[in-house]
Design a protein around this nucleic acid. Structure first.
Lengths: 366, 366
DNA sequence: ACACGGCATGAACACCTTTGCAAACCTTTT
DNA sequence: AAAAGGTTTGCAAAGGTGTTCATGCCGTGT
């Protein structure tokens, strides 16, 4: 209609209620150059005359312009957004992991897009689908499960999938994880060496890799040492689940003298059940041992003996993979297992320490 | 070089390592329609013949096509991505808030882009700048501070800014928050009514709105009741900070019989200092009261008397604002204050309950 | 037989950036 | 003075989508 259609249109939009953000075209017009030059002004390494650069920068400042990252990602076919899939913040290990992960990501210029599932058992497929639609650079999964079909789709789309804190077997996906099996072995040894062999085990959610390792590894080593668990209850990795399970165990097996909880949160529940619900003592009556070494485990009220997960190492490994030029797509190694070390505190009888273990029986100086 | 430069290039890319995802053009070609029709197929309410729709859907499935959300956002000038700015996962209140917030967002089809600052005192300006570059639909800030200049820039760009769990005064930004002042008033009343009036106060980070309210409100009401704090130490909202402060107080003021910590984490530290570092009793020797009612406050080891923050309500209010057609830009009301209620547990002498308060002196049934 | 309304579709433009290529400019050398 | 060489810049296309407008088709009512 209007001979200068374009011109007129942008004028109209600029005045309307939802006034448009300044684009590179606006800056270009004001500075008297082309859009391409404006673009070059914001990409370093591009050749541009210092004088015009200053002029453009001034114009950009006047208009409050800054590059539209969406358009840039679309054009360059690459993004610095990483989908982070998780489901559960209640387990205190998750916040600790998230803190480290998102902190390091920011330092490396990566931005996490947080996709939260409802429950740990839920499949992450829908969330992965969503992540692919956002054309993220990579996907990091912490607690959820994914179908083989969906994992395959990610790799078809050249989007690497990293399982953090869990191993995905028989898939092209990468896993970064603590060696839960060897940690569970150590726990079995500690309880036996400490002379507490009438053991109740509180395991976590069935179907989780973490749980089957922590559970299976413990049983295996205990068996090798010539013992067996007295009782075993499956809970859900939560404080309340651990508490209820411990109550049940104590009532059914009065001679129980040790509880191994497959994570710290359940161990805290068990300790509170022992001390406050039943009025018994830790470790004199019943020893307790956990797994994770979340920050609360060092608190005065618990001082929990446990296996420390090297969160910083796990995160560093993950970041390292993400920063590779291929973001880990061409990686030959699939699983990166890090060793957790044993931390001795006050909820078990003292045992001899191995290499890399730490002793915190004396509280840190005030 | 090559006479068919462009053609050859895209062929190369298509075959090489990073093969291109299917676009709507590919689907259109396969189904024998135009791109516009493919687009209509994925927007409901558009008129399209059922037969061709099926044909297009089949083609899309064969090619593994799904709409590119980046391109869509760029085109429609609207996004469902919300920037969530935070700094600290160590304080156990943050995970609880985050869990609720991100969970509800997902239910509403909003996707949080997580931008984490290094420390609570750091300015969020750089993160807000980044969020604006991503053209997010709105920005939710939890613990960080922002300059007036940057807040103004957000509103110039029509991006609403919501402060969650903190009030930003004298700005166009919206605040959703618990009424910390009235909560602090209640705490003062509880301690006085309980007969514990030789009080030490452990406050949080200076310069935070939350802290000045929780601190100022407490002092004010205490003054009105005819008392004053015995001592006051400024800490940093952390467990360890609370523990060290409590030790210092106990050593300097042997007759101290109550500690008010401006959040639960510091209260836990104080309790552990009292019980495990100094071997005294809570509440018999020293009463302790916190603020937040994080999940751990209900655990057997602490059973902390505190003020409950209605997390679900706060989140619901935030979601409600985000879902408004104007995302809250045209809101006349700036601050939404919700009342927290008093939760009585075992760390203070029992007092008469007011309206909406809850009593958890008896532990929940096993 | 013709005009008309409703529906389905395609062409073209817009969103905002980056980039390959070619043209224009400036400086220096022969 | 002109050619050579390097730097700076603009043009146009690409990246994938949504949307307006015009066109074509079909059926209906007169």
């Amino acid at each position: 209609m209007h001979p200068y259609g374009d011109q007129a249109m942008s004028e109209t939009y600029a005045n309307g209620a939802g006034r448009r953000r300044a684009s590179s075209a606006d800056v270009a017009a004001l500075a008297g150059v082309s859009r391409a030059t404006v673009s070059r002004c914001f990409t370093d390494g591009a050749s541009i005359k210092p004088e015009t650069r200053d002029r453009i920068l001034a114009a950009a400042r006047d208009l409050g312009y800054e590059p539209n990252l969406l358009a840039r990602m679309l054009n360059k076919q690459e993004s610095n957004i990483i989908a982070v899939l998780t489901s559960d913040f209640a387990n205190p290990f998750q916040p600790a992991l998230m803190e480290a992960l998102t902190g390091r990501m920011r330092e490396e210029g990566l931005t996490p897009l947080l996709l939260k599932g409802q429950s740990a058992t839920e499949s992450a497929d829908a969330l992965i689908q969503l992540a692919l639609s956002y054309r993220v650079a990579a996907i990091v999964v912490t607690v959820l499960n994914a179908s083989h079909r969906m994992i395959a789709r990610c790799f078809e789309a050249d989007v690497p999938l990293i399982f953090l804190n869990r191993v995905a077997e028989d898939t092209p996906a990468i896993s970064v994880c603590v060696n839960s099996r060897s940690g569970a072995h150590r726990i079995a040894e500690v309880l036996v060496e400490g002379g507490t062999t009438r053991i109740g085990m509180i395991s976590g959610k069935a179907g989780s890799w973490t749980n089957s390792m922590r559970r299976g590894g413990f049983r295996q080593r205990l068996d090798e040492l010539g013992y067996d668990v007295l009782t075993s209850i499956q809970a859900d990795f939560s404080y309340e689940g651990g508490r209820v399970a411990a109550l049940e165990m104590m009532d059914a097996y009065p001679r129980l003298n040790a509880i191994y909880a497959c994570n710290d949160a359940m161990a805290f529940g068990a300790m509170d059940a022992i001390r406050y619900d039943r009025g018994r003592r830790v470790p004199d009556d019943i020893a307790v041992i956990g797994f994770d070494d979340v920050p609360v485990a060092a608190w005065g009220a618990y001082r929990l003996t446990t296996i420390h997960q090297p969160v910083a190492q796990l995160v560093e490994q993950t970041i390292h993979i993400l920063k590779r030029p291929d973001r880990g797509l061409a990686l030959s190694e699939q699983a990166f297992l890090h060793d957790g070390h044993f931390v001795q505190r006050l909820t078990t009888s003292p045992v001899k320490l191995g290499d890399g273990d730490t002793d915190e029986r004396d509280p840190p100086p005030a």
